[in-house]
């Protein structure tokens, strides 16, 4: 932990102008993470408005707990974990989607994230039909380009388990998408 983060933790109960670096630090984190979070959520929800809401809500949660999360070695891992939890939760998706529909209706069709081409949308639709863990592993591996170890850290399982999830997911996707895959060692 850096000296700076220790200092942020020590001053967590008093807000002064000196807190501004902490705010700026979250600001930079937010700018970096928002598009990545939207991409990951988009892959797992298939809905652009929902993906933005899920990303926004996840980063707002990080913002609320930034005193703690900001001290983590990898706050991004926390964000990814919360995000995939939310993105793959049907209830939240429905709830968030409903709010998103209301919001979009109130401001017209001013959508921000453009649609995917049909063949890319087909891939993610097939991924979303996978069991939850397999879908999450695929999205983290391909969208976030994480290693087995990094995915294991997010999902809370071993790299070997991640490899199993990916293998099973690919086996299913081959059938659904009608493509070939040759496993390399």
């Amino acid at each position: 932990m850096s000296v700076a983060t220790t200092e942020y933790r020590a001053r967590s109960t008093v807000s002064t102008p000196r807190d501004l670096p902490r705010i700026e630090r979250f600001d930079a984190f937010y700018r970096d993470e928002f598009p990545r979070a939207v991409a990951l959520a988009y892959a797992l929800t298939g809905n652009r408005a929902v993906s933005e809401d899920v990303a926004q809500e996840t980063l707002l949660a990080a913002h609320r707990h930034w005193d703690r999360i900001g001290t983590y070695d990898q706050p991004t891992a926390w964000v990814r974990r919360v995000l995939i939890n939310r993105a793959t939760s049907f209830h939240r998706r429905r709830t968030v989607e409903w709010r998103a529909v209301l919001r979009l209706a109130s401001r017209g069709a001013n959508t921000i994230v453009p649609d995917l081409e049909p063949e890319d949308a087909e891939v993610w639709a097939a991924v979303r039909e996978l069991p939850r863990r397999q879908a999450q592993a695929i999205a983290l591996h391909y969208v976030e380009e994480l290693s087995l170890e990094e995915i294991g850290e997010v999902l809370g399982c071993s790299p070997g388990t991640v490899k199993t999830h990916l293998h099973r997911a690919r086996t299913r996707l081959i059938g659904r998408l009608g493509v070939r895959y040759e496993e390399t060692t």
């Binding site: 598009p35 990545r36 939207v38 991409a39 988009y42 995917l116 891939v123 695929i138 391909y142």
Partner: peptide
């Protein structure tokens, strides 16, 4: 999968 991933990243990059 890589092409589809690039597509969602590109789309989200505009968010």
């Amino acid at each position: 999968l890589r092409k589809a991933s690039a597509a969602v990243r590109a789309a989200a990059g505009q968010a």
